[in-house]
């Protein structure tokens, strides 16, 4: 089970979601996708997209303006 890192720090909508979509397509079932970013709208948008794709959001954390979202494929 691999961990796929997606760093979209400094990127704004819709780039983070585009990168997440690429990672989700590449990931195998059981892989974890770890996304880090700074755009606040993307922090809300990515879990929405995960729900649409019926993927499990494992955690959403934020520290000093940088958020990390973990999604299980």
């Amino acid at each position: 089970m691999a961990e796929i890192l997606v760093n979209v720090t400094g990127e704004t909508c819709p780039i983070p979601l585009v990168e997440v979509r690429k990672a989700v397509k590449k990931a195998q079932s059981g892989d974890t996708i770890v996304i880090t970013g700074t755009n606040q709208a993307s922090k809300k948008e990515i879990p929405m997209a995960a729900k649409a794709l019926t993927l499990k959001v494992l955690s959403i954390e934020e520290s000093e303006g940088i958020w990390t979202i973990k999604i299980l494929k």
């Binding site: 909508c13 819709p14 979509r21 997209a49």
Partner: peptide, 23 residues
């Protein structure tokens, strides 16, 4: 709302549409 966001989110639900948005 921006067209790119709409198309991306609809795509997650298996729906393909297009937008006049720049990106």
């Amino acid at each position: 709302v921006e067209g790119e966001s709409i198309t991306l989110h609809l795509d997650m639900y298996g729906i393909s549409v297009s937008t006049g948005s720049a990106c």
